[in-house]
Design a protein around this nucleic acid. Structure first.
Lengths: 336, 336
DNA sequence: CTGTTAGCGCCTTCAG
DNA sequence: CTGAAGGCGCTAACAG
């Protein structure tokens, strides 16, 4: 016996398919009596509506897609939760995709998502190249860009004020007395990486400190890269007395490198970082961090996308910038 | 201008829709000449196939669903990667869902997934109640159960040998000289939680140690629960000299509690645990653990499901049990 | 190699 | 309050 369709239910209840549809979707008025007969038939047959057919007809799938760059990072899983909770409340499902910072994987996923007729896409772009957004727009799928800026394209965006976060972290280090400060960040092609450097430079310039070029290191947002960048920066003369890590993974990698070099944190080297979320898994949080509101970012991005879908968002593209607060802990102290 | 359909492409290329379909799917033979004209039309119109319509017609969506219980836990994100990589290679997309160990959320998700006509479901069951599997089977959707056993229902299953893992961990503690050993685990309704207790009891009985009832604590697989269970167990007389944590989150919570009580690990109390994955984010891994092959579990489960879908799996239900190895580190030492 | 016909399961429109 | 007809976009089956 094949899977029952709306027609099977209709036949069994002695009504037309459309009536069953009305009962399922509570659209139009159906007499309590008929309604009950339909419900009974649904129950008896174990009928489950086919939402593929429904979506095809309605031209909407009640589904959002969320494309992130690294699902292993607790920072992103927190964003995921913010998105999911918000979508769920609005009756939307979420398809989650992971690009591993790869542009080609990103392209592949976006293609599939558009084909699957998702109603909207939340994208953490692998790079700041705006063409991908143009392409999605051409497919008439609404997009909200998350966490990272995109160049030269008008699009809804929700992100954190990375520059200010970095600025605050460096100010904190300066206040402790540091003058030689290094920064380890992600790829140049990722806006958050360069903005964090910009905030660093801003603070250093205000303090009238000459920044040594070896103090600024670009890599990737990974532990391995953090490890390597830290090793390199230790060889720079003059050697920094404090490091600003572009994210939590870089911080962990860097601290491993410092440990390998026999350096104590914060005794021999202060370390401050973005993204507090490693503390979920640490016995004793000790990293001084700029703590991005990950959950809120997910929430707001999803809310904005949903507003777009229902035509409730203002015509012009929104750019929401969330503030960052820093939390001082024991990984930063005065220089030797 | 509305989104172009296969008919628009056909018209522009001067062919029938089916010919366009054949070009897109490389099904049937099409002359290179026609094919080129079609490709051109597709390009010019920016045509993207509607896979909703395709799935409706073909009765398959090339989509799997993965339902996990806690996406914040790196253990699960690793499983996710194993599943995704395997699915991707076979041309399948994955819809990821997070139940937070809640049966009602689980039910809700499964309903949506069946409605969306996913081709198969990979489920980490919130509880060992077998009825949910019966329900999915009734919907004719293949399922593979991950990580946790389900009672009394014939179904494909891929999981790790929790009992043996716990047995090994306790043996390790016994070898160090511990006789009073406590165990902090998850909910009684979750098979892995109880299996880990079973392995503990097995090892203790073999060593002819009388297990004090206060030494076995059931809670949930969360940090808060670990914290609370650890606080309680410290009041038991005789107090354990070593603790076995049912997962990484419980271990972290427990260690925080020990720290709050002024106890040193492993000086005053040894701690061993399941799931090594916190180490990704730790500067210095120090927990003695039973390290479950998370990525492989995801891979194998996805592979099994895909084999089912293509009819390549053996008729009878498979139960794959992956071995667990323990890694001894500095969190465990001899008792005082 | 190419096209015609028909229908996947559902819901909008218009009639009763 | 209920139903009949038609079509969303796609592809199998069967011509030619």
């Amino acid at each position: 016996m094949p899977v029952p369709t709306i027609r099977d239910v209709a036949k069994r209840a002695g009504v037309a398919p459309i009536t069953v549809s009305r009962v399922i979707n509570r659209s139009g008025n159906v007499s309590p009596d008929t309604s009950a007969r339909v419900e009974k038939a649904i129950e008896e047959l174990g009928y489950v509506p086919n939402s593929l057919a429904r979506s095809l007809r309605l031209k909407r799938s009640q589904t959002l897609a969320l494309v992130v760059t690294d699902i292993s990072n607790p920072f992103w899983t927190t964003v995921v939760r913010g998105v999911e909770d918000t979508a769920q409340d609005a009756g939307f499902s979420v398809i989650l995709c992971n690009t591993d910072e790869s542009e080609s994987k990103q392209e592949q996923y976006l293609d599939v998502l558009v084909q699957k007729q998702v109603d909207g896409i939340l994208l953490v772009p692998a790079t700041s190249d705006g063409r991908i957004v143009d392409w999605i727009h051409k497919q008439r799928t609404p997009v909200v860009i998350l966490d990272r800026a995109i160049e030269d394209v008008p699009v809804d965006m929700v992100r954190c004020d990375s520059q200010d976060g970095a600025y605050q972290l460096v100010q904190h280090l300066l206040a402790l007395g540091h003058r030689q400060i290094g920064v380890l960040t992600g790829s140049r092609r990722v806006s958050t990486a360069s903005e964090r450097v910009a905030g660093y430079i801003q603070a250093m310039e205000e303090a009238e400190i000459q920044v040594h070029e070896g103090w600024i290191r670009y890599g990737t947002f990974s532990q391995d890269s953090g490890y390597e960048m830290a090793q390199r920066i230790l060889e720079v003369d003059p050697r920094p007395t404090a490091l600003l890590a572009g994210n939590n993974f870089i911080a962990v990698g860097a601290m491993r490198a410092l440990r390998g070099a026999g350096l104590d944190v914060p005794g021999d080297m202060s370390v401050v970082s973005f993204d507090d979320l490693t503390s979920h898994l640490l016995i004793e949080p000790f990293l001084t961090v700029a703590d991005q509101p990950a959950y809120e970012m997910g929430q707001q991005a999803a809310a904005l996308l949903l507003a777009r879908l229902s035509g409730k968002a203002p015509e012009e593209h929104q750019e929401i910038l969330l503030p960052i607060q820093i939390t001082a802990r024991s990984s930063s102290g005065p220089p030797l």
